[in-house]
Design a protein around this nucleic acid. Structure first.
Length: 757
DNA sequence: GTAGTCACTATTTGA
DNA sequence: TAGTGACTAC
C-alpha cells in the first residue's frame, strides 16, 4: 500500500479550478463540467487523491451510468495509484446496487440468487398480466404500460400511491387505461414470486433496503463508504438521488459527496432524469462547494463559439461560459444536399477528402444522427467508397436467441422460480410440452400464487405431457444441483450439455445453426474467462471471489454490446447523438439537420422538449475536436414517403463568422410546420431489392406442370431446384440457390412458382 | 410447427 | 418503406 506522502505529480496536470475540485475531498462538492473540460480527469484524480490521503480504496464509491465510463475511470485510477485501484467501488448504479443486493436481498424478502429480468422478460410478463386480466392489448399497449410502471418506480410511487395519485390516474383515465395501477401491483407481485428484479427494481429495492433499514443495514453501508462520487449527475432520476441521500445523509455519514454533471448536457429527461436534482443538491447540502470547469481542452475556437451560441438560446441554465485556449481551427462546414441520398454521397466523399488532406485516421471520424434509421444511406455510400465503418446500437450478443435460450437454462438452474426463463425453455428443444400444458401450469401457479416450477408437481397432466414434464423436471433438477455446488464454468458446461440445445442446432445443420453453435461456444468461453478472472464480482468479503453461476448471470445482465467493443479496429463510427455522449473525435459529421428530424417532430409541442433537443445538438457539436461538418437535405424519404423539410433552426443559431463562407447561407421559410409530403411510393428504385427474382418477368406456372427435379423461380427466394413433392402436389421441398438456408418446404397452393427450364 | 399474409406503426436508450 | 406480431391454414 502506498504511503500518503507519495508524489502528487498528477496535480500538476490540472488547472487551478480542476485542482481545487480534486483536492477539496471533504464535504459536499458540486462540479459543473462543460464539455471537454477534463471531467473524467478530475473524477479519477480526485479518487486517486482521496486514496493518497490515506483513505482505504474500498471506502470510495463512484457511480456512473455506463459500464464503459466505469471501466475507463478504473483504468485511469490504476495508472495513478496502481493495482489497489480495483478495490475502489466504481461501477454503474445498477451494478453496484446489484452487488449489494446480492448480499442483502434476504433482508427484503428476496433470495441472494435473484434473477434480473431484461426488457424482453418484462414485456412478456406485462403481456401475461394484461391477458389474464382480459384487457385489450391495443388499449393497454405493452410499451406504454411498462413505461408507466417504470416512471412510477423512478419517482417512488407505489401501486397504492399510484391509485391515489391524481396526476397518474388522471392521465391514465384520460387515455382509457385506468387499470395500469392494478397491472403495476400484479407485476411487482409476480417479480417477487419469481425472485426477479427488473432494472428499475435494482434501484427501487436498494432504496427500500436503506429506507426500511432492516437490521440497521443503512448504518453498515454508511460506515463502509466514506467518499461518494456521482458522474453525469444531470441524468439521475428522483429514485437515484434519494438513494444517494440515504447513503450520505445519515448520522454516521461524513457526507463527503461529490457530484459531477452539466445541465447543458442533460438529454435523458424522456426516461425520467431530472435536472432539478442539480438544483436540489444545493438545498439538501447547503455547505456545498461548487466548481465550474469552463475551460475546454477538446475543441478549437470556432466549435466552442458555435456551441456557446447554440446553448444560449435555452431558458433556465446554470450560467457559465465555455472557452478554449486552442487555436481558431477550421470553420464549421455546412453541407446542404438536395436529397438524403446526396447527403450520404457528399458526406462519404468529404470523409475521403479529409482523410487525404488532414491525414485523419478512420477511428477519429464519426457520423452522428438523431435517429438510428438514418444510418442506412451512409452505410451504402461508405461501402461504395470502401470506407470501413461500424454502427453503434443494434442487437447485442446477449440478446441473440440462442444465447438467451442458454441463459434461460442457466437462470432456471440458479433460481427455479424464474417463470420467464421457464416459459422460454420448457419446450425448447422441443420435448412435447405444448401451449395447453403451459397454460395449465400458468393457471395453477396463478391460483396458488406460486411459481410455475413449484406448480409442476401439483397438476395431473395427461400421460404424454406428464412424461415430457418429468424429463424437463429431471434436467432442471440436476442442473440446479450443479449450479449450487460447482463454479460457473463447470456448472454451465454441464447444464448446456444437459439441455440438448447444441444437439438441436446440430440437427438443423444449416449455416445459421452453425453460427448459433459458435455463439454458444463463445458464451462458454466467456464463462470460463469469468471463472478464471480475478476481477469477478466482490462478495461479502472483498478477498473472497464469488465465482458462482448466479454471480455470473447477474454480472452479464448488466452488460451491453458497447462493453465488448474492440477499439483497435480501423473503422469510422456511425452512432446516434445520444450514444455519442462522452465520446470525442477529431472530425464529426452531424447529419440530418432539418426541422422535424433534428429537432424531432415529437418535441415540437413544448418548449422544454425543444430545449432538450437543443442540448442534444449541443452535445453533438461538442464531440468534435478539429473538424465539424453539419449537413441537411432538402428532401428525404421517411416511412416510404418523400418528405420536404426546412433546414434546422439550430443551424441559424450559429453565427456566420464561425461558418465556412464557401457554404451558402440558409434561408428558411418558417418553423414548426408539419413536413410536406411530396409524393408517395417513389422509393422503388432507391434500394436494391433484397430478392433475386424480377417481379416484372414473374409469371407463375400452373401447379400441374411442376415436377420433381425442375428448376423453378420463387418470388422471394429466387431460383431453386425441386427435390421432392408429395403425390397431391401440395407440398414441395425446394433447395434454393441464392439463400443461405438449405431446403425449404413450400406449399404450392400459396407460394406460386415459375418453371425456369 | 411453419410459411405466408395482414395490419400496424414509426425518437432518443442505459442497465 | 421496413420490421414486427398476430393470425391462419395446412
Amino acid at each position: 500500500m502506498e504511503s500518503p506522502e507519495q508524489n502528487t505529480d498528477y496535480l500538476d496536470e490540472l488547472n487551478k479550478i480542476q485542482r481545487q475540485a480534486v483536492t477539496t475531498i471533504n464535504g459536499p462538492v458540486m462540479v459543473i463540467a462543460g464539455p471537454g473540460s477534463g471531467k473524467t480527469r478530475v473524477l479519477t484524480y480526485r479518487i486517486a487523491h482521496i486514496i493518497k490521503s490515506g483513505v482505504p480504496p474500498w471506502q470510495v464509491l463512484a457511480l456512473t451510468f455506463t459500464n464503459k465510463a466505469a471501466k475507463e475511470m478504473k483504468e485511469r485510477i490504476e495508472k495513478v495509484i496502481g493495482p489497489s485501484a480495483n478495490k475502489v467501488w466504481a461501477g454503474t448504479f445498477h451494478s453496484v446496487f446489484c452487488k449489494i443486493l446480492r448480499i442483502e436481498a434476504p433482508k427484503i424478502g428476496y433470495p441472494n440468487d435473484f434473477t434480473i429480468y431484461d426488457t424482453d422478460d418484462c414485456k412478456s410478463l406485462v403481456n401475461e398480466i394484461t391477458k389474464t386480466m382480459g384487457l385489450d392489448p391495443k388499449v393497454y399497449i405493452n410499451s406504454v404500460v411498462r413505461s408507466r410502471i417504470s416512471a412510477a418506480k423512478s419517482n417512488l410511487i407505489s401501486p397504492k400511491a399510484y391509485a391515489n395519485n391524481e396526476d397518474y390516474m388522471g392521465l391514465d383515465t384520460m387515455n382509457k387505461r385506468p387499470m395500469i395501477h392494478v397491472i403495476y401491483e400484479k407485476y411487482l407481485n409476480k417479480c417477487k414470486k419469481a425472485g426477479a428484479m427488473d432494472f428499475d427494481d435494482l434501484l427501487l429495492h436498494m432504496f427500500r433496503l436503506l429506507h426500511m433499514n432492516p437490521d440497521n443495514v443503512r448504518a453498515k453501508y454508511q460506515e463502509k463508504f466514506k467518499y461518494f462520487l456521482v458522474d453525469e449527475f444531470q441524468d439521475t432520476n428522483v429514485l437515484q438521488y434519494e438513494i444517494l441521500k440515504l447513503f450520505t445523509n445519515g448520522a454516521s455519514s461524513t457526507r463527503n459527496v461529490c457530484i459531477v454533471g452539466d445541465d447543458a448536457q442533460s438529454i435523458y429527461s424522456f426516461r425520467g432524469a431530472t435536472i432539478d436534482n442539480i438544483l436540489q443538491f444545493g438545498k439538501d447540502y447547503p455547505q456545498v462547494k461548487t466548481f465550474k470547469l469552463e475551460q475546454n481542452y477538446r475543441s478549437t475556437k470556432h466549435i466552442v463559439a458555435a456551441a456557446n451560441q447554440v446553448i444560449s438560446n435555452n431558458a433556465n441554465q446554470i450560467p457559465k461560459k465555455i472557452w478554449t485556449d486552442l487555436e481558431e481551427g477550421n470553420k464549421i462546414k455546412l453541407v446542404r444536399a438536395m436529397t438524403d441520398v446526396e447527403e450520404g454521397r457528399r458526406v462519404a466523399s468529404d470523409i475521403i477528402e479529409q482523410k487525404n488532406r488532414y491525414n485523419i485516421p478512420n477511428t477519429e471520424i464519426a457520423i452522428l444522427y438523431r435517429t438510428n434509421a438514418q444510418s442506412r444511406v451512409f452505410e451504402e455510400h461508405l461501402r461504395r467508397q470502401n470506407i470501413p465503418y461500424r454502427i453503434y446500437g443494434g442487437l447485442s450478443f446477449y440478446q441473440r436467441k440462442e444465447i438467451k435460450d442458454v441463459i434461460a437454462y442457466l437462470r432456471l438452474s440458479t433460481n427455479s422460480n424464474d417463470d420467464e426463463a421457464l416459459k422460454r425453455v420448457i419446450n425448447y428443444p422441443k420435448r412435447g410440452i405444448g401451449n395447453s400444458t403451459v397454460a395449465l401450469l400458468t393457471k395453477q401457479a396463478d391460483q396458488d400464487n406460486t411459481s410455475m416450477w413449484d406448480s409442476i408437481g401439483l397438476i395431473n397432466f395427461t400421460a404424454r405431457a406428464s412424461k415430457s414434464m418429468k424429463l424437463f423436471y429431471t434436467i432442471v433438477s440436476a442442473s440446479k444441483e450443479k449450479a449450487q455446488k460447482q463454479d460457473a464454468f463447470e456448472a454451465a458446461s454441464y447444464i448446456i450439455k444437459k439441455s440438448g440445445i447444441i444437439e438441436a442446432y446440430k440437427a438443423e445443420n444449416t449455416l445459421e445453426s452453425k453460427g448459433r453453435i459458435d455463439n454458444i461456444n463463445a458464451l462458454i468461453d466467456g464463462i470460463k474467462e469469468f471463472t478464471d478472472s480475478d476481477e469477478v464480482a466482490l462478495g461479502e468479503d472483498e478477498n473472497n471471489l464469488d465465482r458462482s453461476l448466479s454471480s455470473f448471470l447477474q454480472t452479464i445482465s448488466l452488460m451491453t454490446q458497447a462493453d465488448k467493443e474492440s477499439e483497435d479496429d480501423d473503422h469510422i463510427t456511425l452512432l446516434s447523438v445520444h450514444a455519442a455522449k462522452g465520446l470525442e473525435y477529431r472530425s464529426v459529421f452531424v447529419v440530418g439537420l432539418e426541422e422535424n428530424l433534428f429537432p424531432s417532430f415529437m418535441s415540437m409541442s413544448s418548449p422544454q422538449q425543444l430545449d432538450e433537443e437543443r442540448r442534444l445538438f449541443y452535445v453533438a457539436i461538442t464531440r468534435a475536436k478539429e473538424l465539424l461538418t453539419l449537413s441537411c437535405a432538402n428532401s428525404r424519404y421517411q416511412y416510404g414517403n418523400l418528405v420536404e423539410n426546412d433546414s434546422s433552426r439550430f443551424l441559424e443559431e450559429i453565427s456566420e463568422e464561425n461558418l465556412d463562407s464557401s457554404a451558402f447561407s440558409f434561408k428558411r421559410k418558417s418553423f414548426g410546420k408539419t413536413p410536406r409530403k411530396v409524393s408517395a411510393g417513389l422509393g422503388k428504385a432507391r434500394n436494391k431489392p433484397t430478392h433475386i427474382a424480377e417481379p416484372e418477368n414473374f409469371v407463375p406456372s400452373p401447379i400441374k406442370d411442376i415436377e420433381v427435379g425442375m428448376r423453378v423461380l420463387h418470388k422471394r427466394f429466387g431460383p431453386g431446384k425441386i427435390l421432392s413433392m408429395d403425390e397431391k402436389k401440395k407440398l414441395a421441398t425446394i433447395k434454393f440457390e441464392s439463400v443461405n438456408s438449405p431446403e425449404k418446404r413450400i406449399l404450392l397452393q400459396y407460394a406460386r412458382l415459375q418453371i425456369l427450364d
